[in-house]
Design a protein around this nucleic acid. Structure first.
Lengths: 253, 253
DNA sequence: CAAGCTTATTACAATATAAGATATATAAAT
DNA sequence: ATTTATATATCTTATATTGTAATAAGCTTG
């Protein structure tokens, strides 16, 4: 670790981190009070952040976040970019468990596979990157639905008519809502042959620092191999992987 | 303007701006080459940005953007936050033109009004913040549809069955697609009595630095007042407002 | 596996920059 | 209109930052 960290940069980001869900405007007085710096220094940092596009002045001495962050976040969350971050994690999971794994995004009512790893087995279950799956009958899909804002979930149910793929598919709206409630409560989702009779999957969410779901991670394989003890083991590893990702990707507190 | 800008912070953001759509990984060599700094200095800045959560090390000396930006962007783009930025702009537009104006987001196939200004007139057309409108027959909606990624537009048409509200409503998919092509080409959308017989609206998009549509801005009013010369004037003002917003919110180049 | 090359880190010194103090200007509140 | 609070400009000084040199670590090639 390089010994010398640049204090000015650290302080600039401390200012940026003063913004929160309930706090969209920051003033020089806030910076002075909360970071313990001199008034002139506070003004200098705010002006510098404005200069680079990180802040926008809205009133005298009062600032909002600048659109630079929308651009940087888009570059961060672009599917290809995110896949690059997730691929080593999936490789490690599949290496450890001997079962396929994948990560998804949620687009236009469908779950989209953005990265996957396949085990070194002669016969295996696989999925192609870019494939789209229905949400109501997949572990990933139920995870995404469980973490949609209420209005968006209502809209989903008003547009989508869930049909049965197997005897295990949950199709009724009330039954699905109950299942999503269970997914929220337990923190993971399972596909017990709901999309294909013999396929089992377990998925966990990855959240951003502010609680929005960024991606899902899952392990999947034949029911015969992925149940009971093996399923519990897979869940533990998935949770670990999500925690490690969260820790390595999130801002230090 | 405070004379003294903090050079270290400026340089740190220059590093962050090296990331682009096609470039998701930055190395110390890149920083040296493109910012003309010493190798030790480049490593120090990269380590500092990693320390604050702005970057994440993926390999030896190679970095990706950190999840901090997802959080900051969420705080930036939160509807309430965005509305606060847009409200003065709408107030100015409505003050200048004497017609109502509004800004929207696109959620779950619907256009959602997040901010609006009403003119000082005894009888006027208004809309409530939070109201949702269909996309195919509103200026805002056609704007959002025109700038959806192709796959998302296909999915929209597979889910939504446009119906006629007035004699002017465009309902056929082919005709709508042609209309969206025209909106893309001309850079603005019009609602010529497609949702309500007597109502005319003109909308322009606001894009982020990387080209994604952030919000729409429109002016609307009765056809009798908002046509011909008045419509052209309104369009000019809308474009000006969008350009000013883009300039004031975007990162300086 | 070893040697050579490249990249990363550490320690040190110099200096340029940043921070604080003070004074002045501007804006807001009374 | 006056007073108070905030923002900016200027100056000085201390320190944090930068570059250099040396060392360590990692990668590539034979």
């Amino acid at each position: 670790m390089v010994a010398q960290i640049n204090g000015s940069v650290v302080k600039a980001f401390e200012i940026l981190k003063l913004f929160s869900a309930g706090r969209t405007i920051i003033s020089a007085a806030d910076v002075m009070a909360e970071l313990g710096v001199n008034a002139v220094t506070a003004h200098r940092f705010l002006k510098t952040l404005e200069h680079v596009g990180a802040l926008v002045a809205v009133d005298r001495g009062r600032y909002r976040l600048g659109f630079l962050f929308a651009d940087l976040a888009e570059r961060l969350l672009d599917g290809g970019s995110l896949a690059g971050i997730l691929q080593p994690v999936l490789n490690a999971l599949t290496g450890r468990l001997g079962e396929a794994s994948m990560a998804t995004l949620f687009r236009a009512d469908k779950v989209v596979c953005i990265a996957r790893a396949v085990p070194d087995r002669p016969v295996l279950v696989d999925i192609r990157v870019g494939s789209e799956l229905e949400a109501w009958c997949t572990a990933h899909g139920k995870l995404w639905l469980a973490h949609l804002p209420e209005k968006e979930l209502d809209a989903y149910f008003s547009r989508v008519d869930p049909r049965a793929f197997t005897g295990a598919t949950i199709t009724g709206e009330a039954a699905l809502r109950a299942e999503l409630e269970r997914v929220r409560r337990e923190g993971f989702a399972e596909n017990r042959g709901e999309r294909e009779d013999t396929l089992h999957a377990i998925a966990v969410p990855l959240f951003s620092g502010s609680g929005r779901m960024i991606t899902g991670l899952s392990v999947f394989g034949p029911v015969a191999r992925l149940s009971g003890e093996a399923a519990a083991t897979a869940l533990a590893h998935l949770k670990h992987a999500a925690e490690d990702l969260h820790r390595s990707l999130d801002a230090p507190r």
